[in-house]
Design a protein around this nucleic acid. Structure first.
Length: 483
RNA sequence: GGCGCUAUCGUCUAACGGCUCAGGACGGAGCCCUCUCAAGGCUUAAAUACGGGUUCGAUUCCCGUUAGCGCUACCA
């Protein structure tokens, strides 16, 4: 039987969840769920200088919002914790010392100043900059004494001086990288924290990770990691390096060229379904022509084999379209719930639930964002105060006032106030007045809503109710009579 | 600079050597529907970076060029 799939998303908590990070997390999650495996969240906070207060909570909250929930991670121990690297320092230290003892790593006492200097010299000579391995052959006993004496040091792994490392990546195939361009990488920093390379290998092994699914920026580091696996004599995970997400100008997706934080999109009113759907399709597709997917379908259909190799531009236009698609698919209950906060911001509190749901059903095809209802459909919640200028010009002509007034009277006399009876009344009146229905329809819409566009006029009036409609019609006639 | 990865319409992508005058979607243009605005339907413009091979046949395989990106830290 195949080994149980275990994958992880391992972000460093630098403040917010990047959309690229969400995609990496999502692919890991989809892969795990598809294969009945475990999705683990591990926090890589080994850089003390980049620590940001509250970042971990924010990360977890955003993942949860998106529906990418972890099986194991902070506050959800699965027996492999702790899941925060700064709480695992002893572990890394122990493994680093094991490498020292087996001659695969060494203490290095070079100062940052010295390193800086050799780097400068190398760049001046147009050489590849790399550590000159000054401390590599220091006798271990001597080095240990200096460490014991409290001398500032780091631990570096020994990288073979020549030869090459070849490995398989699920997405890229065979990759070959020569050792002579790889530094003797620092694995334990002078503050006692591990660097990414040591921590990731130790944790992935200890946590039983079977597939390492991460961004392409890590591809060049794989030889270092494989070397460590060999030094420890551990089994290798399967490597999967995902293509990057790009700005419209094809550079790596970054701030400045738009929003990159998932929470920014969330705040703008993008639905989690749309974000997840969209992000999933940046670098993956099901192989047919379907585009609108929910999470459970993504899980069902996802496969690493269908992930593309090249970077994908984050195209907001398409995201907007998907948002609209998902809004159309929402139940009226859910959509009402999404819209309500925006109404309340405008002061329309206590809107009756059933009424709201009816409004939402009339408006959903005209919405891209939940806030659109509050911005374009205010007349459902209060009488219009003003009337669209262009609309007045276009459809309020001499005689309109009279006709609308007559229509209001007809409506008042109506026993049943339904869209059908309203329409019949309107068409009948237009016939009697020998004018085209449009001569009535457009001014009435303008009078009732203040706008020129919107849902079907008769459905809208039915929902608004007789009293409100008649009041609005008469008010508009009064207000627009001199025009 | 070195090393690595990538390269199909503006964008996301399909095609896993022939079924392709390269398909779909977003966006654009036009038409239809229609009480408006949407939604929807239909139509349309738009791409295999370039040059060599391999092959009876290349978007697909190989090589080179070019371009983009990534890595090259005591950052991840």
């Amino acid at each position: 039987m195949e080994k149980q799939v275990r994958v992880r998303f391992a972000p460093s908590p630098t403040g917010y969840l990047h959309v690229g990070g969400l995609r990496t997390a999502l692919y890991n999650f989809l892969f795990a769920k598809k294969h009945g495996g475990q999705f683990i969240l591990r926090i890589e906070d080994t850089d003390q200088t980049r620590k940001v207060e509250g970042a971990v909570e924010n990360l977890i909250d955003t993942l949860k919002w998106a529906g990418v929930e972890y099986d194991e991670g902070p506050n959800r121990d699965g027996g492999f914790g702790p899941y925060i690297q700064s709480q695992r320092l002893e572990l890394y230290k122990r493994y680093a010392e094991q490498l020292i003892d087996s001659g695969k790593a060494y203490y290095c006492f070079c100062s940052p100043e010295r390193l800086d200097e050799i780097r400068k010299k190398q760049t001046a000579l147009k050489q590849t900059s790399s550590y000159d391995r000054h401390c590599r052959d220091l006798p271990v006993d001597e080095a240990k004494k200096r460490v014991a004496a409290g001398e500032r040091h780091v631990i570096r792994m020994k990288v073979p001086l020549d030869g090459e490392m070849s490995f398989e990546d699920v997405i890229r195939g065979k990759v070959v990288i020569s050792f002579n361009i790889i530094d003797d990488q620092v694995i334990i920093k002078s503050d006692g924290f591990p660097t990414y390379h040591l921590a990731v290998v130790v944790d992935d092994h200890l946590m039983g990770i079977t597939h390492v699914i991460r961004g392409e920026e890590w591809l060049s580091s794989v030889p270092k990691h494989i070397l460590l696996y060999r030094y420890f004599n551990w089994d290798l995970p399967v490597y999967v390096h995902l293509p990057l997400l790009l700005n419209p100008d094809k550079s790596k997706l970054s701030k400045r060229q738009g929003d990159v934080a998932v929470e920014d999109y969330r705040a703008k009113g993008y639905l989690k379904e749309a974000i997840v759907n969209f992000i999933a399709f940046l670098g993956w597709n099901p192989g047919d022509e379907r585009e609108v997917f929910f999470m459970d379908q993504l899980i069902e259909e996802f496969s690493l084999e269908r992930v593309s190799k090249s970077g994908a531009v984050f195209n907001v236009e398409k995201l907007n379209w998907l948002n609209q698609q998902h809004i159309k698919l929402k139940s009226s209950e859910e959509l009402a719930q999404l819209v309500r906060p925006y109404l309340e911001k405008k002061g329309w509190t206590n809107v009756e639930e059933q009424y709201l749901q009816n409004v939402v059903n009339l408006m959903r095809e005209r919405m891209v964002f939940p806030r659109d209802l509050a911005e374009n459909g205010g007349y459902f919640f209060q009488d219009p105060e003003s009337f669209d200028e262009a609309g007045i010009k276009k459809s309020w002509e001499p005689g309109s006032g009279e006709r609308v007034k007559l229509f209001a009277e007809r409506l008042t006399a109506l026993d049943e106030f339904s869209h059908a009876s309203i329409e019949t009344a309107l068409r009948k009146l237009s016939e009697e007045l020998a004018v085209k229905p449009n001569k009535l329809i457009h001014p009435v819409r303008l009078a009732v809503s203040g706008k020129t566009g919107g849902p079907g006029l008769f459905e809208m009036m039915e929902l608004l109710g007789k009293e409100s409609v008649v009041r609005r019609l008469l008010y508009a006639v009064k207000k627009l009579q001199n025009m």
